[in-house]
């Protein structure tokens, strides 16, 4: 296995070893699913069992996958990346014969994937109890695939944004903006196509939708080939941006002193 594969496994092992953190994250996610399910239960009941074409069960499965795509990637990862660059810590990684961003993304990817599987297993079981089986077996399988791509996209975007610290020496404010954009523009709380048409038309083509809305839509049985293509395109853009930012940034790194 090459260095990136071992880095990926190392990240996964690290997550699974920290059982306390993992349990807390999964527990919090279940609480959020329970709270949002209660809201959607009331909303769908008030509208004759469906709202905007979604049944209560579909909405529960939507929320479960949207949450399982956002909870596993630490919100402050951008700040950590920026801190490593701003403090010069990245210099140590540059002394290794491997891509700095590649190894970093592999470790983060392994850690996030381990968390995501735990979230999907626990969240899936919880959603099943709350709302019955997923609307479609095939959609559920596609949703799992979309969730993996979503994770990669999220990590790539975080590295691209964190890499700004090569120029600005600081990426602290970016993580907050990124998190809120995923929460609102990604459709974590509400499927984007339930928003007013103009708002939905604005957010759906953006990468934040590819992180939460796309896997959620597949889980709810509302996925489409166009959404998969959108997600793949953003993944290519995100990965390209991350590698480009680090390649350019490493060439202009300025670390003064020891």
């Amino acid at each position: 296995m090459n260095a990136y594969g071992i880095a990926f496994l190392t990240g996964a092992r690290r997550t699974l070893a920290a059982r306390g953190d993992l349990s807390t994250q999964v527990g919090m996610m279940l609480l959020v699913i329970l709270a949002l399910s209660s809201v959607w239960h009331a909303a769908t009941a008030a509208h004759g069992g469906h709202i905007g074409g979604y049944s209560f069960g579909e909405l529960v499965w939507y929320i479960t996958f949207a949450e399982a795509c956002t909870v596993p990637v630490p919100a402050r990862a951008i700040e950590d990346i920026g801190e490593e660059i701003g403090s010069g810590e990245v210099a140590v990684a540059m002394l290794r014969p491997a891509s700095v961003v590649g190894i970093r993304m592999a470790i983060d990817g392994g850690a996030a994937l381990a968390r995501q599987w735990c979230c999907l297993l626990a969240g899936g079981a919880f959603a099943w109890i709350l709302a019955g089986p997923p609307p479609s077996g095939l959609s559920a399988i596609l949703a799992v695939g979309a969730s993996f791509l979503s994770l990669l996209l999220s990590i790539a975007l975080q590295h691209a944004l964190g890499g700004i610290a090569f120029w600005l020496k600081d990426a602290r404010s970016t993580w907050f903006l990124f998190q809120k954009l995923i929460l609102i523009g990604g459709g974590v709380l509400i499927p984007l196509n339930l928003l007013p048409h103009a708002v939905a038309a604005f957010f759906i083509p953006l990468p934040f939708a590819a992180i939460a809305y796309v896997p959620g839509s597949f889980a709810a049985g509302h996925g489409s080939i166009a959404l998969v293509l959108e997600q793949c395109c953003w993944l290519i853009v995100g990965m390209g941006a991350a590698f480009l930012v680090f390649a350019r940034g490493e060439r202009r790194l300025e670390v003064l002193g020891g």
Binding site: G5, T10, R96, A98
Partner: peptide
Amino acid sequence: RRTYALLASMYG
């Protein structure tokens, strides 16, 4: 030991 495994893979 885990770090060494990762470093060894990087250095081939």
